[in-house]
């Protein structure tokens, strides 16, 4: 076995793994933003999101 094949069998880079986990965490909708989860007939999850309350903010409609 050459040293190159030994290198390829190494474990995944932990920093890369941490980066992927962080990315996935940032992409997910934070639980505190979800007001309610409706389960639809086909099993999909419809997320009802909490409104963002900012005093004095102008709404578009």
């Amino acid at each position: 076995m050459t040293k190159y094949s030994a290198k390829s069998s190494k474990k995944a880079d932990p920093r890369q793994q941490a980066r992927e986990e962080r990315k996935a965490r940032n992409r997910a909708i934070a639980p505190e933003r979800i007001a309610k989860v409706h389960i639809m007939a086909d099993g999909r999850k419809l997320l009802e999101l909490k409104p963002v309350q900012i005093p004095g903010y102008t709404y578009a409609f």
């Binding site: 419809l46 997320l47 999101l49 309350q53 409609f61």
Partner: peptide, 11 residues
């Protein structure tokens, strides 16, 4: 969106 009138729902 004015939360008094509309709700945002997302899949």
């Amino acid at each position: 969106i004015n939360p008094a009138r509309y709700k945002v729902e997302a899949f």
